[in-house]
Simulated scan of single mutants.
Amino acid sequence: MSSVPSPFQVNVYGSSLQVPENVLDAMRNNQPSANCTLPILLKSRSFESSGKTPPNQQVWVVCSSKNSMGDVVVELVIAITEGYIDSYPAFFFSAIPPHLLAREFVQPRMEKMIQALFIVLPVRRVYAVYGPDLLAKAFAWCWTSLTGVGNYSTKPYYAAKLSFCTRQTFKTRLLPLREDLTAEIRPADPNDIMEVAQCCYGFASDSDPYNLTEQGAIREAEFLVHQGQIWIHRVTRKGTGQSAIASIVAFTRISETNGTITKVYTNPNWRRLGCAERLVRQVCEL
């Protein structure tokens, strides 16, 4: 009998400090695509390097192969990590652009990665997956086949499109505000926390089962404000002094050269005034 060696290998790391440097290099070389994994990995390494222990188990599953020169090439990464508010979904990183991924390439690798994940992680910890369509579907199919846990729905719960701009591609656009209003765009400060919390609550209100309680929204707002990760667009009615936060923008996944906007919300009372676009544009010019 003869056997054919696998063209790839899968490794599991229970600490961010154990994750090899070539994995970080692969993510750093494609920071927009690594926006869900690299910032968390860097933050975790800094946290663990100071002698602290993450509050919950974090797992990094890495699939790699060797090129014709014998060098190890990172292909796929699954990250099971923790956030300040709650546990994150399973996040993916692909060193290969998503539009070049093929099912024949992904499926066998995903099967081995999930088998490795199943050994070290409780089934209940995987409550959602987030990433490129092909990877998310492959994960869901393999996870259900292995664990018997079916999908919540036949349709994706949430669909998003990743886009990015640079200082070279960003284009300025003037967005005048209604004449009876004035605008103030700036980072949120501690005096804004309760209004920011109302926006966080509103953002999550139609995201069942990921809704926030009022206290949960306050906790999130306090964290975002103290971390300097949220900007506000405040509007004031001329001649009255009455003001309110119309829109918020949060950017919570930040690496060396990349920042990701993860939350945009406009109070229903102030919609159709261009507040969200005005605020997003200001944040992108940072």
Rank of each mutant, 00 (worst) to 15 (best):
L76H: 06
N56K: 13
D189N: 12
S153F: 00
L279K: 09
N269M: 03
G202K: 06
K155I: 07
D180L: 00
I254D: 03
P7N: 05
L17C: 12
N67E: 00
M69V: 12
P98M: 07
G239I: 13
C284H: 12
S46F: 04
T260D: 09
Y13G: 09
Q229M: 03
W143R: 02
G51I: 05
R28K: 10
Q57G: 03
V74C: 10
G274S: 03
S46Y: 04
A217T: 14
T260K: 09
S243N: 15
L174N: 15
Q115P: 03
N11Q: 12
T213E: 00
I119W: 06
T147G: 15
S16E: 10
T172D: 11
R219N: 13
V280K: 00
I193Q: 03
G239V: 13
L38F: 04
P176A: 09
R186D: 02
Y152M: 15
A34H: 07
T252F: 04
N35M: 08
V129G: 02
R281S: 08
N151D: 15
E82W: 14
T37H: 06
W141K: 12
A197N: 08
R125G: 00
H233W: 13
N258D: 14
V74N: 11
L177D: 10
C275G: 12
A188D: 06
N267W: 06
P187K: 05
G274M: 02
V4W: 04
I114Y: 07
Q115G: 13
V120M: 09
Q229V: 01
M194W: 09
T154E: 12
E82V: 11
G148M: 09
D71E: 10
Q168G: 07
V120F: 12
P7F: 03
F47W: 14
P156N: 00
N11S: 12
A197S: 11
R45Q: 14
R167A: 09
L174K: 14
A79L: 12
G150S: 08
L135A: 14
L146E: 07
V23K: 00
P54H: 10
Q18L: 11
S207K: 13
R253H: 04
Y158L: 14
Q242A: 07
Q198T: 05
K137S: 14
Q31E: 15
W60S: 09
D192S: 08
G70Q: 01
A221H: 05
I40S: 10
R219Q: 13
A217L: 12
S153C: 05
L101M: 11
V196C: 13
T53M: 03
M194L: 12
F92N: 14
T37P: 05
T37M: 07
R125P: 04
Q57Y: 02
V129F: 05
S3L: 15
T252K: 12
A159R: 11
V59W: 14
